[in-house]
Design a protein around this nucleic acid. Structure first.
Lengths: 202, 202
DNA sequence: CCTACCGATCGGTAGG
DNA sequence: CCTACCGATCGGTAGG
């Protein structure tokens, strides 16, 4: 039943990880059973434990790899010498691309992280808080420099980050516009929603 | 353990419904156990079945009552004699208020509906599709009348509806701005993100 | 990587 | 509304 065959470049562990992300996205963490996963990978349930330590380790792996990628990106963007709106646009495009190209993992880390167990749960929440604080700091800076309207920065972060979660529905719809169109539509609404019209021409 | 005591106006069934919404929101549908619920209501697990038929009936009740309220609202708004942007603003404010005042139910219907069983699952998805189609039709109409920018309507619906889901995080944060401020920040970003600047003064 | 099997927990029923 | 209990399923282990 394995949809992905192991090769020199794809280890069994990587296959398990990929199938786990897909399964957890489809059913939710609690409803995703190890027996289900084993069938998809093409082995007996007990055999999975030669490659992984536990079910929660799978969730944990997905959540932290995604969280770390986003953290690296925002730290890279922070240091660039461009306007705040350009930084935010860059982050939005990154988010959209992550959602499009690593859909299962990003979705799972976004919606299933609460099933993490301690101490990982606290670590993950802390990572998430730090990311949001950085994002809010960018928006606040933009407001101070009159690039962005006088809006509450943490609220703006919530709106923007959740708005991107909407790609989930796009991803599974049949009537798809292209990725580029999707990206541009999102940028148009969100960036122009935040931009200060008295400064930005057009 | 019952947090709510039954009175003349609050039946036991209503208490069960309210505690179920809270529990399912906190743990997710699969992880929410009937034994957990029973303890919160203050009875033995078996006793719950004198008031409800099954666990899935609880989810089903929550999802459909929320979905029907939203459907009624959009049908009311559609017929008003106001501009399209005003209609959309009205819907956004309704969404925000629902999220603020019926947080548990709205959250559950939004994130846990996939655990509905057939035929309810299909019915719910159909309701959701109809709602989105109506919303998209409004946006398209706005675009045609030059009130709204030339954006892809279904994409705009996704963005807007998911953005509102962000209130979830607001709802549980300590550092709360007021409901009115929250509402106005959201409206500012989203409505102005969609509005066509060449037409709308300000 | 498999067979065999464990203890725990689940939703739900019988019967009073 | 309770006691007692069911069959199913779960994550995980032993032992090879």
């Amino acid at each position: 039943m394995a949809r992905i065959k192991p090769t020199d470049t794809t280890s069994r562990r990587e296959i398990i990880n990929a199938e786990a992300a897909l399964l957890i996205r489809q059913k939710g963490f609690k409803a995703a059973s190890m027996r289900d996963l084993a069938t998809r990978v093409g082995v007996e349930a007990a055999s999975l434990y030669n490659h992984i330590a536990s079910k929660s380790e799978l969730l944990h792996g997905i959540c932290f790899s995604v969280a770390h990628r986003f953290m690296l990106k925002i730290e890279e963007v922070e240091n660039k010498k461009i306007t705040v709106l350009q930084k935010i646009e860059m982050l939005l495009r990154y988010h959209i691309n992550e959602m499009v190209h690593h859909y299962e993992e990003v979705y799972v880390s976004d919606r299933e992280w609460r099933h993490l167990t301690e101490p990982y749960l606290s670590d993950y929440k802390e990572l998430r808080r730090r990311y949001r604080r950085k994002f809010a700091a960018l928006i606040e800076q933009g407001t101070k420099q009159k690039e962005i309207k006088a809006i509450d920065a943490p609220t703006a972060v919530l709106i923007v980050l959740h708005a991107i979660g909407g790609i989930e529905s796009w991803h599974r719809s049949k009537r798809k516009i292209s990725t580029k169109e999707l990206e541009n539509n999102m940028i148009t609404i969100l960036i122009e929603g935040m931009a200060n019209k008295t400064i930005n021409k057009n």
